[in-house]
Design a protein around this nucleic acid. Structure first.
Length: 282
DNA sequence: AGCCAGGCCCAAC
DNA sequence: GTTGGGCATGGC
């Protein structure tokens, strides 16, 4: 068990703001999830976080997964200096952290996300993992049942396209197959994206089947530490139009505005806006 | 019944 | 470079 105190962390906000799909709530402050073939139970009480892992597992994986070395207070004050009008959205999602997830899992997950709803994306990722992933031993079978790692590129590349279709992925079946093949043929490419300049990394991703500008930005932001990535989906388009008068169908204009306004903090701005706008809708 | 969802692909300008 | 139509699936 690991315990730590953190001022700027909200577990529920972080796990429900739309960046991850593999965590299940036991309660608002108690979650069980899977990442990189590991199962973790994590709970929050006030400023105290408790993680069900040992020191080694924490040091070599979960610390970075939860982005614990970043000073979010400093990041937010810099972001608000660049975009003061975000104050309300940042305050609303003040405990959000951007997770560092697995590149191949993000690739396939966000291919699934295209023209889809979040609950269905979650369900499809679960079906893919349950069908093609390795089972992971864990002590909470009574709470969440058996848990499975996200499948590796080789397994998904070998998966029958018809079988994928029958899981419910729709027309994205061939995107998954082709992208898994491409990942398999280029070992190290996805893991190396974090070491490439943003535009080069984005171009590499957009060469994958089923990956356009928006999906590429999600992958870069959630698994490659490219914090200038700014995924533009239907929600973001609407709020940019309303806040700044940007036309919804001029991607180049949006791209320029985002780069000039937020620079290397665009991804954080994006996540605060996405979380805020979706909450306001309900 | 039709519209929409963390859009992408492809063809046609 | 940009624009429009088509697209599996399921919830509202």
């Amino acid at each position: 068990m690991i315990s730590l105190k953190l001022e700027t962390f909200d577990l529920k906000e972080t796990l429900t703001c739309g960046q991850c799909f593999r965590w299940q709530a036991i309660s608002d402050q108690d979650w069980i999830g899977v990442a990189a073939g590991r199962v973790l139970r994590i709970s929050q009480s006030g400023e105290e976080l408790t993680l069900s892992c040992d020191q080694q597992d924490f040091d070599e994986y979960w610390h970075d997964y939860f982005d614990l070395s970043r000073d979010y207070g400093q990041m937010k004050s810099e972001l608000l200096r660049r975009a003061p009008d975000l104050a309300e959205a940042v305050a609303f999602g003040r405990g959000i952290r951007l997770l560092n997830q697995e590149p191949f899992e993000m690739l396939i997950t966000y291919i699934l996300s295209a023209n889809n709803h979040i609950p269905r994306i979650t369900e499809l990722v679960k079906r893919l993992s349950n069908t093609y992933g390795k089972p992971i031993d864990h002590p909470w079978d009574d709470l969440v049942g058996p848990l499975y790692a996200f499948p590796d590129p080789q397994t998904l590349a070998q998966a029958d396209v018809t079988a994928l279709r029958e899981l419910g992925v729709g027309y994205r079946d061939k995107y998954i197959h082709e992208s898994a093949m491409r990942a398999l043929e280029r070992p190290g490419l996805l893991e190396g994206l974090k070491n490439l300049p943003y535009q080069e990394a984005k171009a590499e991703l957009m060469a994958f089947s089923g990956v356009g500008a928006k999906v590429a930005d999600c992958i870069l932001l959630f698994s490659a530490r490219h914090y200038s990535a700014f995924p533009v989906d239907t929600w973001i388009k609407k709020t940019l139009a309303r806040r700044y008068g940007l036309p919804e169908n001029k991607p180049k204009q949006i791209e320029r505005f985002v780069a000039e306004t937020f620079w290397d903090l665009g991804g954080f701005a994006n996540q605060y806006l996405f979380f805020y706008e979706r909450a306001m809708e309900k």
